[in-house]
């Protein structure tokens, strides 16, 4: 701040009061323990995430690592889209570029800083990203946007397509954080996404597609599909 002295003054005053305050109150009783970990099997994790995200109006396509590009093309051909924002420098982006066809919405790379391409970002209909994983317990995707797959890719376009490896669906957020040691290095931005954007601010009527994407399409790449279980 411009007046540094004034600010450190506030900090010291506050911390002094807080230290005096906590000194007045002793240690409390032993803490209630962590909740028992969830233990779904692999097929349950896929099925649960699919069911919960579909309930939140996400469109889920279960495919596999060889068929997903065809599945994506199918999804795109059902829609009229002016373009697909993608990350050219990722393996996913390279696969798309190699397999692209003329009748599909043109691939548009997110290659410049936002200041140079903001209008395009807000005008393009769809974007495709990878995901870091999923969470079965609550039905959500984990995204860690980075230099190649920036944050607005999953936010500005009206349709967000996400590619999820079924092997990376965790039981819970707590498990994902612990197994992948998030605490040792958080990214600039980490996200959980459970569906298209929504609101219930008018009479609690649930409406989809507010400020974020109107549609969320998730391609789950499952190379060990469970034998067709009773639904």
């Amino acid at each position: 701040m411009s007046e540094v002295g004034e600010v450190s003054h506030a900090r010291d005053h506050i911390l002094t009061r807080l230290r005096a305050a906590v000194a007045q109150v002793g240690e409390s009783a032993p803490e209630a323990g962590a909740l028992p970990p969830l233990d779904f099997d692999r097929a349950e994790r896929v099925a649960r995430l699919k069911r919960l995200m579909e309930a939140m109006h996400a469109e889920i396509v279960v495919t596999d690592s060889t068929g997903w590009v065809a599945a994506l093309k199918n999804v795109l051909r059902q829609r009229t889209l002016n373009g697909l924002l993608y990350a050219p420098e990722t393996p996913l982006g390279a696969t798309l570029a190699a397999a692209w066809e003329d009748d599909l919405p043109p691939l548009v790379g997110y290659t410049q800083e936002v200041e140079q391409c903001k209008e395009q970002l807000f005008a393009i209909d769809a974007g495709i990203t990878s995901t870091k994983g999923g969470i079965a317990e609550v039905g959500a995707l984990i995204l860690w946007p980075d230099a190649h797959e920036p944050r607005l890719m999953s936010l500005a376009p009206a349709v967000h397509i996400a590619v999820l490896d079924a092997d990376r669906i965790h039981n819970s957020l707590a498990e994902a954080m612990a197994q992948e040691r998030w605490a040792e290095g958080m990214p600039t931005n980490a996200l959980l996404i459970s569906g298209p954007s929504k609101t219930a601010d008018i009479e609690l009527v649930l409406t989809f597609g507010v400020h974020g994407p109107k549609e969320l399409i998730v391609l789950i790449l499952d190379d060990q599909p469970a034998p067709s279980a009773p639904s």
């Binding site: 969470i135 959500a140 980075d146 600039t188 931005n189 996200l191 996404i193 459970s194 219930a200 974020g212």
Partner: peptide, 24 residues
Amino acid sequence: ATGQLITTYFNMITSPRKPGEKDG
């Protein structure tokens, strides 16, 4: 709050835009 298992977005912010990153 709303009887939701999770909200649409849970947004965790740890830093401003780092060198090389394109937005934020």
